[in-house]
Design a protein around this nucleic acid. Structure first.
Lengths: 342, 342
DNA sequence: TTGAAAGCGTTACCAG
DNA sequence: CTGGTAACGCTTTCAA
């Protein structure tokens, strides 16, 4: 059993109040007593019990990040950003995925309601209706920020990349290369990111007097598998597009793999653009041209936004931080081969 | 301000003790009172305050996972496994990286010592001496398990893949294909995984009457960049190996990218084998032959081992769980081309 | 089956 | 500058 503040008080001949002050507000204690107390503290390796402290202070010094799927490597960089900012302020990072958070009809807010965490960083924009409703309760809404994805309703503070601007960069790049038949490989239907990115593509194509080929292309999620599966769909497109802008890098890499299996060459037969700039994008063959979003920064900004929010600096309700993106031009895009025009 | 157990007690005309029992041991309460209390609880959406409960019960209902780098996507699957097992038992998952955990001379054990968490899952085998020493304190050692990596000293319980067996599979595969000049691309020097995998390669080569080419090849970490950088080193090897077994998939993919830039073809000019079977391994071009380790399972096993440990089921001291691995044969390996023999 | 009451380890207010 | 002392919200004997 470890020592409590009472033991330290007794051992150093002062009251528990003084020990407490020595530890949390050293300047409110005389130098002599401070040194005496610290000597005892150090000798015994005493650490305050955070459960007791938190109960008394009525806060948890920790926040919960909710992602759609913990196994998705996309979120690692965001965790790093969150952690980086949170740990600097002594706040802990808990993680969970919406699936387990919601399991057994449990509330997304259990952690908040049970006072286990002070706030929530929600990285999932596809919450079931019940969860969305809960989030809007006035005493809750101030403790939540969204990151990456967001909710169309509710005016939650959020941090996101400039998805439309990203797609404009992609379209301009391809059009500049000479492409006119450009397709968009969709992510999950209804997902805000997919909606936004698609809108960005449509909007930018329009400004060049172009449009997307008719039917929706792609379905499912943002994954490698979905990308690969979309290859067959691509082959059926008439006229066949000379370039595809994908809703994510994983889709693009999966599609490249699928196209390759069907004997099509990237970028000779078709140019590919991704979105995210995940680590491997630069290392696949050919290296992927993609819209880079700064995931670390998304984490950093989300954490500091939440921290400010919790600190009561409620200066900016429904604050939205939009992060800039950039186009990384690599080997997966090239001018369309004239030979292929059917 | 939310309601406390006192409010619920008052509202339902019973004592706080009864409310507490109703919530945590429903069978120790008469059906009538139980229903009455639950009605009030439900109407007001009362949730137990976990800080108070934990202070009283003297536990945190949460564990901390420490990884070398939160930004490394390799760990996502392991987090998923940890979470899956932990959440089933109502335990929370905190994450941090060794870097921030150790920042400012802080102890790795702060969280444990401050009673913020009940136990530690350590995924970093390269801890500084001071941290290693701390971990061995008797009251601490029972609350820690290692996963993936481990410490050579200290007899901590740990979960790991069968690294040697994996390398045997890789070597046998290459030798079976006709390779005799096989190199090993090293990860970080001194890292237990690298040491173990290299030993596995050496051992298996020896059983075929073969040996590694002289000098150590590769240095740095397990990353894509390190792999790419190793390409130049590879070119300098004489005689040039016809195959390379890499300490990780990232190294292999990076090396492939570097070799490609130098005009070498995989697998025509050189065969490549990775280790891990990360998601992208199957999607790069050519798809990577690799030793698959089940990261989700590593997480699952580590969590349940820790949970058992904490529950006092100290049945197996220095317990080591070794998980099986398998070889995924894909396009990056082929028979050596005779033409290239110098 | 239920209630009273003693803590769990801190912090912060109020005196001195 | 320091000490006494209520809380913080809950669980768990111990009695009834």
């Amino acid at each position: 059993m470890s020592l409590s503040i009472k033991d330290i008080a007794r051992l150093s001949g002062v009251s528990t109040a003084t020990v407490s002050r020595t530890l949390s507000q050293p300047d409110r204690v005389s130098e002599t007593t401070r040194e005496a107390v610290m000597a005892v503290v150090d000798r015994h390796g005493y650490r305050v019990n955070s459960m007791a402290r938190n109960l008394r202070r009525q806060r948890a010094d920790s926040v919960l990040a909710i992602v759609p799927d913990l196994g998705n490597p996309f979120f690692s960089a965001i965790f790093a950003g969150l952690q980086q900012t949170l740990s600097a302020g002594g706040t802990d990072l808990l993680v969970t995925d919406s699936h387990s958070a919601l399991r057994g009809g449990q509330s997304l807010l259990s952690h908040l309601r049970e006072a286990r965490v002070d706030g929530l960083v929600c990285l999932d924009g596809e919450l079931p209706e019940a969860a969305r409703a809960e989030l809007k309760a006035p005493d809750i809404a101030t403790r939540v920020v969204f990151a990456c994805e967001w909710l169309a309703e509710g005016d939650f503070p959020s941090v996101r990349s400039d998805n439309r601007a990203g797609m404009r960069l992609a379209v301009d790049h391809l059009v500049g290369l000479g492409h006119r038949d450009i397709a968009y490989l969709s992510g999950p239907g209804g997902n805000v990111l997919d909606t936004e990115r698609r809108a960005g593509v449509v909007e930018s194509l329009a400004s060049h007097g172009l449009a997307l080929p008719g039917p929706r292309f792609g379905s499912g999620d943002f994954s490698l598998e979905a990308g690969r599966a979309a290859a067959a769909e691509f082959l059926a497109l008439i006229p066949r597009p000379t370039a595809v802008i994908c809703a994510s890098d994983q889709l693009a890499i999966g599609l490249a793999s699928g196209l390759h299996a069907h004997g099509l060459r990237v970028p000779d037969d078709v140019s590919l653009v991704g979105f995210d700039d995940i680590q491997t994008a630069e290392f696949v063959n050919p290296p992927l041209t993609t819209v880079r979003q700064d995931r670390l920064q998304i984490g950093v900004q989300a954490a500091s936004l939440l921290l400010r929010q919790l600190a009561g600096a409620n200066c900016a309700p429904n604050k939205i931080v939009t992060l800039p993106v950039s186009l990384q031009v690599r080997g997966s895009t090239a001018a369309p081969s004239l030979a292929r025009k059917p």
